[in-house]
Simulated scan of single mutants.
Amino acid sequence: MATQVDIPGYAAGTWVIDTARSNVSFQIRQFGVATRGRFTDFEGTIVTAENPLDSTVSTVIKTASVDTRNERRDTHLRKPELLSVEEHPTMTFTSTGIRADGGGLFVDGDLTVRGVTHPVTLTVDLDSVAGEPLERVTAHTEVSRKAFGVVGPLRVVVSDKVKVTLEIVVSKQG
């Protein structure tokens, strides 16, 4: 059993991502300049246990929903050498553990992109939304695109590191 942690306003239950109020975004450096994008089609569930450290998270993101505000770039990102959306229509994250460390909250889990799975750690910030049955969860991580086989033809001009930010609003079920 994990050590108990106290999170103000925390409630046990099953929570579903409110996609209209949530954002799954990324940032990568291309030609030395930050390029930002997001995924517009995703879903997920957070099951919060009595002890927050026993909770679970699972998400599914539709890779074809990539949106960088540039249709030509988005079409390129969907190709087989990058996201390969026809062969791999989804990417997933499934938590393997939640831990508190040094005043921070972290969600460890398995991220699968292009059929390749690697462990990642999300750094989490929690804010209660006063007076409403909603919770806001902000998390971020950094991953290697090459580790997941997202290489493409422009290896030199695009950085390996991708910053991922999740701004999630969930509503409690039942």
Rank of each mutant, 00 (worst) to 15 (best):
M1L: 10
A2N: 10
Y10N: 06
V16Q: 11
D18I: 04
T19E: 14
T19A: 15
A20W: 02
S22G: 07
S22L: 05
Q27C: 07
R29T: 11
A34E: 08
R38A: 15
T40C: 09
D41K: 13
D41H: 11
T45G: 03
T48N: 10
P52T: 02
L53K: 11
D54V: 02
S55W: 05
T56E: 12
S58I: 01
V60G: 09
A64H: 04
N70H: 12
E71D: 14
R73V: 12
D74H: 04
K79W: 00
P80F: 01
P89V: 00
P89F: 01
M91D: 03
F93I: 05
G97S: 03
I98D: 01
A100I: 01
D101H: 11
D101Y: 07
L111H: 05
T121N: 02
T123A: 15
L126A: 10
L126F: 13
D127T: 14
S128F: 04
E132F: 14
A139N: 04
T141S: 12
S144Q: 09
G149D: 05
G149W: 06
V150E: 00
V151A: 11
V151D: 14
V158E: 02
V158H: 04
V162G: 06
V164I: 15
I168F: 02
S171P: 00
S171Y: 13
